[in-house]
Amino acid sequence: MRFNFNSSEPIYLQVAQQIREAIFTKTYLEGEQIPSTTEISRDFHINPATVLKGMNLLVADGLIEKKRGIGMFVAEGAQRRIVEKRREFFYQDEVVKLISEAKKLQISQKELVELIKRGF
């Protein structure tokens, strides 16, 4: 796992985002253990309370599960759920924007499909 911290977002959100990304890219497979709060704190000098806050976001989303006394594990279906969510975002953020921009440029639906085919 690698952290590239930027300064404008709260650290706990960045922790959550980095782990989510790692599950998405299958760096951590479903059912596998992820690094402990302590390990992450230690390696990146982040206060354990902050790391825990980030992890708790993922627990609330059902992406990771706590196994008492052992640690945190990637939940069943976590990767698939991330993909679904990102597809949703992809439509909301990218496609809708793309279409509105295309409309501004007077690109027809057919032309847009052609353009996408060309770029694919």
Binding site: F5, I11, T37, T38, S41, R42, D43, F44, H45, I46, N47, P48, A49, T50
Partner: peptide, 30 residues
């Protein structure tokens, strides 16, 4: 910084870090 956080997690001690060099220690602080 590694050992500080590690020691903190293991012992639960309270640390008060006084400094004017903040960038490196910022994320370790609560």
């Amino acid at each position: 910084y590694r050992e500080l956080v590690d020691n903190y997690v293991k012992t639960g001690k309270t640390f008060v870090i006084s400094t004017h060099l903040i960038e490196e220690v910022a994320n370790s602080l609560e």
